[in-house]
Amino acid sequence: MKPPLALAVLLFAGAFMSALLPSQPMRLAAAEDLTIPASPAPTEKPSEKHSEKLSEKPSEKLSPPEKPLPPEKPLPPERPSAPEEPTQYLSPSPLPSPSPSASPPPPSPPPPPAASPSPVPSPTPSPSPSVSRSAFPAPWVTRKPRRLKRAGTLSVSAPGTVQLGGGTAGQTVTAQLGPVLVEDTRGALAAAWVAQATATDFKTGAGTAAETSLKPRLSYWSGPATRTTGTGVFTPGQLTALLAAPMRSTVTAFTRTLGAGNDTARWNPHIVVNLPSGAVAGTYTGKITHSVA
C-alpha cells in the first residue's frame, strides 16, 4: 500500500514541478513587459503637474550649480535644503501679504549668496537629489505642493481678558466668559471643526499648593449656540449647566460637522468655580484657552 502511494506522490510532485518550471520564464517575460510601461510612467506626472517639470530642471541644474545658482540667489536665500522648491516659493508674493516684514526675514541674503554658492553645492544638492533620485524618485518629485486657490480661513475671536467675579469660600461662582465666535470660510465639502477648552491653574499670591487649588474645581459649559449661520450640524459640548464638564482635562466646547460652505457659530460659555472652603483669599489669575481646528 505504501510504496505505490509514495511513488504516486513523487510522480505528482515531478509533474507539478515540470509544470511550474516552464511557467517561470513566462512570468519573467510578463514582468519585463510590465516594466516597460513603468518607464513611461514619468510622463504621467508631468500631465498631473506642469510645475514639476519646471522644478525638476532647477534641481538638476543645481548639480552644476555655479551658473544657474547666482541669478537665483537673491530671491531664495534661505533655500539650502530645498533645491526643488525655489520655483514654488518665489511666488508667495502674489498673495495679499501686507506685512512686508514677511519677506525681509531673510535680510541675510547678502551673506548667503556670497557664502552659499561654495558650500551649498557640496552639502545640499549632493545629499538630497542624489539620495532621492536613487532611492525614492517618485515621492520626491511629487512632494511639490500646489497652491490652494480659493482656500478659506478658519477663524476664532480675538482674545481678551475677563473678570469672573468673586465669592466667599465654599461658594460656587458662575460667570460667562463672553462670546466665542468661530467662522469657517474654508467651504470644503464635509468641513468640520472642533473647539476644545483647557484651563491652567488659577493662582494667587506665591502660587503654593493651597493657592493653586482652583483648577480641579473649575467646570465649563458651553450652553447653546447664541447664533449660527450656514449649514452643518452644530453640537454644543454641554448644553445645560447640568452637563458642565470639569476642566481637569480638555473639554470639548463645540463641534461642527457635515457642513458644506461657510458658517459661523457663536456661543457664550460659562465657567463654574467651586470655591473650596479652605481657599486662600486673594485675586486669582489664570488662563482659559479655546483651541479650534
Binding site: 478658519l154 477663524s155 476664532v156 475671536s157 480675538a158 482674545p159 481678551g160 481678558t161 475677563v162 473678570q163 469672573l164 466668559l177 463672553g178 466665542v180 488659577f202 485675586t283 486669582y284 489669575t285 489664570g286 488662563k287 482659559i288 484657552t289 479655546h290 483651541s291 479650534v292 481646528a293
Partner: peptide, 10 residues
C-alpha cells in the same frame, strides 16, 4: 480682568 481668554486656531 485677571483671567486671560486665549484663543488659538490651527
Amino acid at each position: 480682568g485677571n483671567v486671560k481668554i486665549v484663543n488659538r486656531v490651527g
